[in-house]
């Protein structure tokens, strides 16, 4: 695997290809006879690719479906419809043992470093368990591998017998990263990996993730609500709103020339640590709140808050998600 990456082969073929991905959570009423009364349309039709070795940033506000997207790619939530290709394999068709084998190649880093580690297992147990269940190493060999992994993520291998609660938040996140690396995966979904950490610790984890990517040729889907962090770590960035990607472009293009009004408002809302710049900035303040994903607005889902909405935006069909040139995708009637 590594040799292939080093030769630069397979750069052209995407590692992950998502087609028409939808994840609906049914809402039911009744105790004995459960009636289906509606769906939370958490993810409502996504198409995108992640290239081998790149970091795709996925940003959006809470409830926009970005975490659900990450979980649906890993098949932790089974998609309602659509396909997720990992290389040539359609993950949505896999079940049981076949899916379990694929899990070696794709992993996840979680937001909450406290809740994502089993409090009743030692660090050695947590990081070593995947090695054991996938038959990669056991006994003394497993122990050595675990210590190696701890060293790789910057933890003292001596702490192998300690329990998670003995560590600080940043250290726990490193344990979570070591666990994700244990199976030597190609692809890692990072679900807000730093948003629960203190500001001064965040940079340590970002740098670690960057180093690991370089060393192991990892591909990341980096999910976050913090646009500054996403800009820093991503090669390309996708912006989600109410279950859909509204804009996707490479990082410089997206931040310097945002095309979608939502992206523009989102970027203008992020504070910059410089009083002079802040004094000159024009903020686009969006009115109101995000509508319910159970019953998204007709037409463009952003029209209820969009400062530039036109009549066509309030009518079906939704604006198409199309290339506006140079791989800059956007779904907006103003552009197309």
């Amino acid at each position: 695997m590594n040799a292939q990456r080093a030769n630069g082969n397979g750069r052209e073929q995407p590692l992950i290809r998502v087609e028409g991905l939808r994840v609906y959570f049914p809402i039911t009423r009744g105790i004995i006879f459960q009636r289906h009364v509606g769906d939370v349309k958490a993810v409502d039709g996504l198409d995108f690719e992640i290239k081998r070795g790149e970091t795709l940033g996925l940003v959006g506000e809470s409830g926009c479906g970005k975490s659900t997207t990450g979980r649906a790619i890993l098949q932790l939530y089974r998609p309602t419809s659509g396909h997720v290709y990992f290389g040539d394999v359609d993950l949505t068709t896999l079940k049981g043992e076949a899916l379990r084998r694929m899990r070696r190649r794709m992993q996840m880093i979680f937001q909450d470093p406290y809740a994502s580690l089993n409090p009743r297992m030692t660090v050695g147990g947590i990081v070593g368990e995947p090695l054991e269940v996938h038959g990669i190493a056991k006994g003394k060999e497993k122990r050595e591998r675990v210590q190696e992994l701890l060293r790789v993520v910057g933890l003292n291998p001596y702490f192998i017998n300690r329990y998670p609660h003995e560590f600080s938040g940043g250290q726990r996140q490193r344990i979570g990263i070591a666990r994700a690396l244990a199976l030597n995966p190609d692809f890692i979904v990072c679900d807000e990996p730093i948003s629960a950490l203190d500001v001064s610790i965040q940079a340590q984890i970002i740098n670690l993730l960057e180093d690991l990517q370089e060393q192991f040729g990892l591909t990341y889907l980096f999910i976050a609500h913090d646009l500054s962090v996403v800009r820093h770590i991503s090669d390309r960035v996708a912006v989600m709103y109410l279950g859909k990607i509204v804009e996707l472009a490479n990082r410089v293009e997206l931040y310097e020339h945002p095309l979608h009004p939502y992206t523009q408002a989102l970027l203008s809302a992020v504070p910059i640590p410089d009083p002079e710049i802040e004094a000159q900035r024009q903020r686009i303040i969006l009115e109101g709140d995000v509508p319910s994903p159970t019953n998204p607005p007709r037409g463009c889902r952003f029209h209820t808050r969009c400062p530039l909405a036109m009549d066509v935006c309030r009518e079906d069909p939704e604006p198409e998600f199309k290339d506006a040139g140079g791989g800059h995708y956007v779904a907006c009637h103003l552009v197309h």
Binding site: Q171, S200, I272
Partner: peptide
């Protein structure tokens, strides 16, 4: 100084390595 250097900026021009504050408070 550490706090300012450890946060990425939205108007970051080139991708520079962040300067973390090492250790634990």
């Amino acid at each position: 100084i550490g706090l300012l250097q450890s946060i990425p900026r939205l108007d970051e021009k080139r991708r520079e390595r962040l300067e973390p504050i090492e250790g634990v408070a």
